[in-house]
Amino acid sequence: MDFAFLLIGNGILIGLMYSLIALGFVLVYKATDAINFAQGEFVMLAALISGSVIVGAGLPFWVAVIVALAAMIAFSFALERVVLRPLLGRPIVAVIMATIGLAAILRGLGPFIFGSGTRSITLPVGDEPIEFGPFILQPVQLVGALVSLLFLGAFSWFFLKSRMGVAMRAVADNQQVASAMGINVERYFALAWAMAGIVAALGGIVWGSMLGVDVQVALVGLKVFPVVILGGLDSIPGAVVGGLIVGIVENLAAGYLDPVVGGGTKDFAPYVLMILALMFRPYGMFGKRKIERV
């Protein structure tokens, strides 16, 4: 039983960290209807930047956080302006292909600019595991999970309660009508991408400190798809629940199935769930349904 608790506790923390990355994906989809296949590469870029600030330049951790945030905001603003705005009004496939291309470019240019060796960055917390009842928690994961919860809460509040959040949802609902309400649609698109940049910066730092900083961090982005399909592409609570499910399922598979079949189930178990979700609930658990009145 202790083993199960261990797996579940670990799964919850990892799951929340997945949620953080999925959040960046959800923010962009919610506001602009664009599917960002480069979310994992955003995270990788942020990790590489903070890695080179801490290890390369030898600066303290908090400097790396600020630099990564600033760099990712600037990067996503520029990206929206240069690549995505000209694609406005084109078929959605155009944006998807553009982000896939972008992902490949980033994965190639990242090591080119920042070096290909694995650097390790450490959060300024100890590495003694914390025992909490039946759970044994890694401090790195605990911090990662707390950061995730904080931002998930903050963005939920933003969308539900603030005027800007309401305007952003209006833009997502109908761009033409929103612009007739005096809402500057393009500015809100830029804002959505900038928020995705912020989330990616934080994700890069927590994932980078857990996995080590190199191009492999981008693979975390692949886990975003089962998370958002399970939770719903445009739902922040969905990102949380989806992340928790993926994290827990992954850990249980690693703990119970891998020893039996010889390993590997951890990596595909979430995708099995994703396919099941697509069959039975294509808009996810919390995604917005198409409204049909009769």
Binding site: R163, V166, R169, D173, A178
Partner: peptide, 23 residues
């Protein structure tokens, strides 16, 4: 006021009004 109403379907009635008062 658009033809066919075109309310922001996924927003509540009051949120529609808030969006309308954006400026």
């Amino acid at each position: 006021v658009f033809e066919g109403r075109r309310v922001f379907e996924h927003l509540t009635a009051e949120e529609n009004l808030i969006a309308g008062g954006h400026i």
